[in-house]
Design a protein around this nucleic acid. Structure first.
Length: 491
RNA sequence: GGCGCAUUCGUCUAGCGGUUAGGACACCUCCCUCUCAAGGAGGAGAUCACCGGUUCGAAUCCGGUAUGCGCUACCA
């Protein structure tokens, strides 16, 4: 590496950052951390029309959530600032002017309508679309004429007509483009804002970016950028184009694929570490078997050589599985801390959290290995919080049982549970297991009936632990209620 | 239409001239077991897009075809 590593994540604040975007940020961050370089965030707010309020904050908070800390950029500053392109307009304008005076760029007065018609005609005649260089050789008089008419021009790059541009992408290898396939693209828009092409080249140079890691969709634009570097006399950075992220239908990831905004993953209760791990594996791999990698391991092992060239489909199932792995790896305290904000959004769970945190802390471990997301914890634990259970009475009658045997089992259980002082899981098991034998029931039948009586569900955490957490009072009350239900069922 | 790139189980991927083509998710079976999870053991699933070459030998190298994706904006 010729110099120190400086990479940037340069999002455009046009909405919530989606997972593909964040994956790009992650790879940049990993690359910077791996080589002890700097990770820079630069906001590319050059499209006034598409700018969305709150987008910058959404981007930054997503980075914070995933703990992708930046060394320079919004909030933290840095000596290459400002880090908002809208505050650097002068720089781009000067660069554009320099290109014009050098003869590498020119003013174009074509109206949007003319351009549109031109394109329609090109498409109709099945010709490659592109600017027809109408204004490339305007005379002094013609220009003055347009200016007098009050037409505000754009600045276009004067692409060499012949030759080719060649470069080596760190991921794709050598790539070649003929100049003839590149039209005279716009550098400066009529509103005075630069296009991405100009702005990113100027800024990457000024900010001394060493490597540009960006999505593959930019690969075809790279020749234009190289042409600009050359015309401006800047040394270009190294390029590495990351494979795209696709939806299940193999189309470019977009809104209609659902849950593409990284914010939604936070809301659904994915752990940042799981998200980082999963995203890192989209287009990168360590070897033929390692799937679970900590942040430190990711940093230690990340390399561009192991980035793949094929687009990847975002596989939600696998993310959910991985999130479960990370949830299970949490300590009980960590799990409580992580789940708390999600429980607070649930009415009953939230109340319990406030009035009886100890109870919540006791019940949470029972669902920790059953939850795949934090958001589903409230649902999994709901029966711990409700006053009155609601379920179909016939659930109480297990396989091979009758209403009578269920009633008998419930009554006997009620009987026994009144006795003990100790209501811990072990004591409960010591009491209830023999009871099944006495009643001539399989443990599955007795426990199943009790489970429904006490939780209202057929699928729940282990019975004795659950009962122990619920407490004697609540258990007896619920069993009583279940007997009521069975009685009503008979009528 | 032009240019560029890609193509290994449904999905994420390993592989970089010699492998029974490996792993993971999802799916199925069995075990564990009070249910659900988790865990364990298995199974099914890929003629490596296709066609030709090079080679003793090709998923790996070369050419063509097909398909897909990206770019082709005063969007990034």
């Amino acid at each position: 590496m010729k110099q120190s590593v400086r990479v940037r994540y340069a999002p455009s604040p046009t909405g919530h950052p989606h997972v593909g975007n964040i994956r790009t940020a992650l790879f940049n961050w990993l690359f910077a951390r791996r080589y002890g370089g700097s990770f820079i965030v630069r906001i590319e707010d050059t499209d006034v029309a598409r700018k969305v309020k709150g987008a910058v904050e959404a981007i930054l908070s997503s980075l914070r959530w995933l703990r992708l800390d930046w060394d320079e950029g919004p909030e933290v500053g840095g000596k290459y600032g400002p880090y908002f392109q809208s505050q650097r307009l002068d720089l781009y304008r000067k660069a554009a002017e320099r290109l014009i005076s050098q003869g590498d760029a020119y003013y174009c007065y074509c109206s949007p309508q003319r351009l549109e018609e031109m394109r329609a005609e090109q498409v109709r005649r099945k010709q490659p679309p592109g600017y027809d260089r109408h204004c490339r050789n305007l005379s002094q008089e013609e220009r003055a004429q347009k200016e007098a008419e009050g037409v505000i021009p754009v600045v276009r790059f004067q692409t060499p007509l012949e030759g080719q541009v060649k470069f080596t992408d760190l991921i794709w290898g050598e790539v070649v483009f003929d100049h003839s396939t590149i039209d005279d693209f716009v550098l400066l828009k009529s509103d005075g804002y630069p296009t991405y092409h100009l702005a990113s080249v100027v800024d990457d140079h000024l900010m001394e970016i060493s490597h540009v890691l960006r999505a593959e969709e930019w690969l075809s634009s790279t020749p234009r950028h190289l042409l600009l570097y050359q015309a401006l006399g800047f040394e270009p950075p190294q390029f590495a184009h990351l494979p795209m992220l696709l939806g299940a239908d193999r189309a470019k990831l977009s809104k209609r694929h659902g849950a593409v905004s990284i914010v939604e993953y936070y809301e659904q209760g994915y752990l940042p570490e799981a998200m980082v791990n999963f995203l890192a594996l989209l287009g990168w791999s360590l070897d033929d078997k390692t799937e679970i990698l900590s942040r430190q391991e990711l940093i230690k092992n990340f390399s561009l050589e192991r980035v793949s060239r094929t687009a990847a489909i975002f596989n939600r199932d696998k993310l959910a599985w991985m999130n479960g792995v990370y949830i299970r790896s949490l300590t009980t305290d960590e799990f409580f801390d992580a789940a708390q904000p999600y429980l607070m959004t649930d009415e009953l769970a939230g109340e319990a959290l406030i009035s009886n945190e100890k109870y919540v802390r006791a019940l949470l471990p029972l669902v920790q290995e059953r939850a795949r997301t934090l958001a589903e914890v409230a649902e999994l634990t709901q029966f711990f919080f409700v006053g009155k259970l609601d379920y179909a009475p016939d659930l109480l009658i297990g396989k091979g049982m009758t209403r009578e045997s269920a009633t008998q089992a419930l009554k006997a259980g009620q009987q026994r549970l009144r006795q003990p002082e100790a209501f811990d899981a072990e004591s409960l098991e010591a009491i209830l297991r023999p009871l099944a034998v006495e009643l001539g029931l399989k443990t599955g039948q007795l426990f199943g009936t009790l489970r429904v009586a006490v939780t209202g569900r057929t699928a729940a955490p282990p019975l004795f632990q659950t009962m122990s957490v619920l407490g004697k009072e609540r258990c007896l009350r619920r069993i009583e209620a279940s007997l009521d239900r069975l009685r009503r069922l008979s009528k």
